[in-house]
Design a protein around this nucleic acid. Structure first.
Length: 803
RNA sequence: GCGGACAUGGCGGAACUGGCAGACGCGCCAGACUCAAAAUCUGGUUAUGGUGACAUAGUGUGGGUUCGAUUCCCACUGUCCGCACCA
């Protein structure tokens, strides 16, 4: 054993050994633990220290569970289809297939530097034919079950990516990928009925051990609301307008109605005098981008000339058209109660429409409203709800209206169906064929995968058509049903398609008969721990849950939630902002590994701050853990042959260390795990120095505890201290709690809540003894004062209250 | 606008269910070793006053509950995040 910690040689040696003999072996006698990272998209810029954070954490968890006697599935793969990969290819003028391959090679090299226990025999790649065959297979099942449908509607269109976007990809009216402003384009697209699953996606959140923040984001995104649909007759016609409202209690306060510009009754009810203005308005609304439409501060709108009839009191109220009403939520039409809704209030003020108050705030005089009142209160001017409070009426109104045949109780969701087709080359072809006789026909399973053809020109077009549409030899095919000439669907799937189910494939990655065998799925799934960034809270994580529930429904899997526990690691910032190439603040792990070694960097990644919180990267901080590992090396080098019988002291330190490290690791507060290592190692070294030797088991347990964090040095020292084989074949030590008791305790003494002295006293002392001793110690400070109260919290504190 | 999270030394951060604030690390200062430097080791490091043991103040601001508050409650300020006309 060398007296110096030669990390480079040690790490090289053990990495080679572990490549030959992986420490993680399958053993069906053991319980399973599936620890998964959100698989990366193979980016051209490679990994930085921020990426390491999550990968190190999941590896530490995997190795810890391994030592606890589990068989571990800890796989890695590539999310390689989709816009990021394709945009990178276009930018560098390389075919996406070529650039993706090169990027994977580079990122894979970097991942090896982490020395994680990935099972590379299970590596997957969403762009492999053997993989996307099953991505298509799942789509085919959805199509058969009626969950995939085609619809023409105004969609989010990114002019830079030249592609439609799902709602989840266009939050704030900005393209999730490139940051361009999203416009609207009327297109015929494939949709997935994720809304069929809205209720289950919402309710089952309760089952999940996920960060509350992510659950809340999902439930807000699903956006369930309770209310009523109410029918308003259009005066002088036989038509009726159905509105959705969450405040049916305020029905008597409705003074006008608003239809969205896209509402199909707009044309039919508009009077001739108003027709020109309404048509102009609707045309303008249709050309506005969603950003413009949202960012308009002033409300706009036009009167249709028609009137609706309030079903409760037959009052005639004007019907307007305004773009603040969304076509695709509720019924696309609303009743407006300006007295009790902020938006309606603003609109009424601007267009001088009447305001009728139907809720009187409690303990307040009636006065003219200067803003909408949305709180609770007493119902007024509302015969049907006489004597109720507003919130009471809100509860009861849907039912009351239903009984009267004026409306019905309704539930609405903000969640929209998932726009599933993309006008891009680099994605899974949608396995459908359009036949002039048979209509849209799904490609039979035995003809899957529908392969992505190799093309010269993969760049997106401006027409809203995929580049695939230009390849006649690929587009023209025969109908699987009638054998006649037919055309292939030319859109591809969005980048989320593969990642919505990839975690299943790891269980059985080479299966060409099924997406994964029943046995393999039963053995490994669901995922026990999922580690990744919070940016996928409503994208990938929602889609993956939807896919899993669908596969559960058709009997492919026997669980309906894919990820039991989710951990979101925080971002690592540099100089106060997110690392990015353009800011030039990217810290590469490669250099740090060279300078300090993999073990030091792993440990520092965990030490830099609480893992769920964003942290600031400081290069000099790694010196601390590097020094620590050198201290460990020197400690063991010095004392490995100086065994000393266990003492009360050494037992106490050893067992507190085991107890604390385990507790802190279970809580995933890894920064305190590392500080614990430093603290307890120092204490051990002090003991060893004092008695010139140390109980061998102290060293052994320290090394096993260190193994998940710094595997190379732990293994090297394990071998150097005369142990055969892998340290990962040992097991995680258990603290002997009986060794944690002490004879003498130190109790802080306070006077009036302020710390004054410490009292050392036998741990068995009773209250009287402690208080008597305490007063003795504090005697000079208590002289001349009157004791009002004496407080003793056993083993914690003494507080004497004086006047 | 609505909703959520957070606020502790020069810096990153500890403090379990209310009980010695500042663990651990970085940085800095001093000392040891050295011809010297690096590395390493030892000690110090919230502020103010004092040679000193010690005293006083102190966890964004103002209040409250309590013997005792970084921790609980109320109001405010600031930072970050999510949603954003969802009727």
């Amino acid at each position: 054993m060398n007296s110096r910690y030669e990390f480079a040689a040690i790490e090289k040696k053990w990495r080679a050994e572990w490549e030959k003999n992986p420490v993680n072996k399958e053993d069906d006698k053991k319980p399973k633990y599936y620890c998964l990272d959100m698989f990366p998209y193979p980016s051209g810029t490679g990994l930085h220290v921020g990426h390491w954070r999550g990968y190190v954490l999941s590896d530490v968890i995997s190795r810890y569970k391994l030592l606890q006697g589990y068989q571990i599935l800890h796989p890695m793969g590539w999310d390689a289809f989709g816009l990021p990969a394709e945009n990178y290819a276009i930018k560098t003028n390389t075919h996406p297939e070529v650039s993706t391959k090169a990027n994977i090679a580079n990122v894979k090299r970097q991942l090896h530097e982490i020395s994680a226990i990935y099972d590379w025999s299970r590596e997957i790649n969403t762009t492999d034919k053997g993989f996307y065959k099953w991505t298509q297979w799942i789509f085919a099942r959805m199509f058969e079950k009626g969950l995939a449908y085609e619809k023409e509607m105004p969609l989010n269109w990114c002019p830079s990516c030249k592609c439609v976007l799902a709602n989840e990809e266009a939050t704030n009216g900005v393209c999730e990928r490139c940051g361009s402003q999203v416009t609207k384009k009327n297109l015929r697209q494939w949709m997935l009925k994720i809304t069929n699953y809205a209720e289950r996606l919402l309710n089952d959140l309760d089952k999940l051990d996920w960060p509350e923040k992510v659950k809340k984001m999902q439930s807000d995104w699903i956006g369930k609301s309770y209310g009523a649909e109410v029918d308003f007759k259009v005066d002088g016609t036989d038509k009726k307008i159905t509105v959705y409202t969450t405040r049916p209690d305020t029905l008597y306060g409705a003074t006008f109605m608003v239809l969205s510009p896209e509402h199909k009754l707009v044309k039919e009810i508009t009077t001739d005098e108003c027709r020109q203005a309404v048509e102009d308005y609707c045309y303008q609304a249709s050309t506005k981008s969603s950003v413009d439409r949202m960012s308009d501060k002033e409300k706009t709108g036009v009167f249709t000339g028609a009137y609706g009839v309030n079903p409760l009191n037959n009052a005639l109220i004007p019907i307007w058209v305004a773009d603040y009403v969304l076509a695709d939520y509720g019924t696309g039409a609303i009743m407006c109660v300006p007295a009790h809704d902020e938006r309606d209030f603003e609109f009424a003020k601007k267009f001088n429409l009447p305001i009728i108050q139907v809720i009187k705030p409690k303990d307040e005089e009636e006065k003219e409203l200067t803003e909408a009142y949305t709180g609770d209160g007493v119902m007024v001017n509302s015969p049907l709800f006489e004597g109720m409070t507003a919130f009471e009426a809100k509860e009861k109104a849907p039912h009351m209206l239903e009984e009267k045949g004026l409306g019905k109780k309704t539930v609405n969701y903000k969640l929209r169906d998932w726009v599933f087709s993309r006008q891009r080359y680099w994605g899974e072809p949608i396995p459908l064929v359009h036949c002039p006789h048979c209509g849209t026909v799904v490609v039979p399973d035995d003809q899957l995968p529908v392969e992505l053809p190799e093309v010269e020109n993969y760049k997106p077009t401006d027409t809203g058509e995929s580049p695939l549409a230009a390849i006649d030899s690929w587009v023209n095919t025969t109908c699987p049903k009638c054998g006649g000439p037919a055309k292939r669907e030319t859109n591809t799937m969005p980048q989320w398609a593969g990642s919505s189910w990839y975690f299943l494939r790891y269980a059985d990655p080479h299966n060409d008969k099924e997406l994964a065998s029943k046995e393999a799925l039963k053995k490994w799934l669901p995922v026990d721990m999922y580690v990744g960034g919070v940016e996928h809270a409503v994208l990938h994580l929602l889609y993956a849950r939807f896919y899993t529930k669908f596969l559960y429904d058709i009997g492919v899997v026997d669980f309906d939630e894919p990820f039991l526990k989710l951990f979101n690691q925080g971002m690592i910032n540099k100089d106060g902002s997110k690392m990015s190439k353009s800011k030039g603040n990217v810290v590469s792990p490669d250099d740090l590994v060279k300078k300090y070694g993999c073990d030091s960097l792993r440990m520092y990644e965990l030490f830099v701050g609480p893992p769920e919180v964003d942290s600031e990267w400081d290069d000099s901080g790694i010196d601390g853990v590097f020094r620590y590992l050198n201290r460990v090396w020197k400690f063991i080098y010095t004392y490995k042959d100086k065994n000393h019988a266990p003492t009360k002291e050494s037992d106490f330190v050893k067992n507190t260390m085991i107890d604390q490290i385990t507790k802190r690791l279970e809580a995933l507060t890894t920064n305190t795990v590392v500080s614990g290592f430093m603290e307890y190692t120092t204490k051990m070294i002090d003991i060893a120095k004092a008695q010139d030797g140390i109980d061998k088991s102290c060293i052994e347990d320290l090394l096993i505890l260190l193994a998940p964090f710094t595997p190379h040095i732990a293994q090297e020292l394990w071998s150097d201290t005369g142990h055969e084989g892998s340290i990962f074949d040992t097991s995680w030590p258990k603290a002997d709690l009986s060794k944690l008791t002490v004879d003498e305790i130190t109790i802080p003494l306070q006077i009036n809540g302020k710390f004054r002295e410490n009292l050392k006293i036998s741990a068995e002392s009773d209250k009287e003894t402690v208080l008597a001793k305490a007063k003795e110690v504090l005697a000079t400070r208590l002289a001349g004062k009157t004791i009002v109260k004496e407080i003793y919290v056993p083993n914690k504190i003494v507080n004497i209250v004086v006047k």
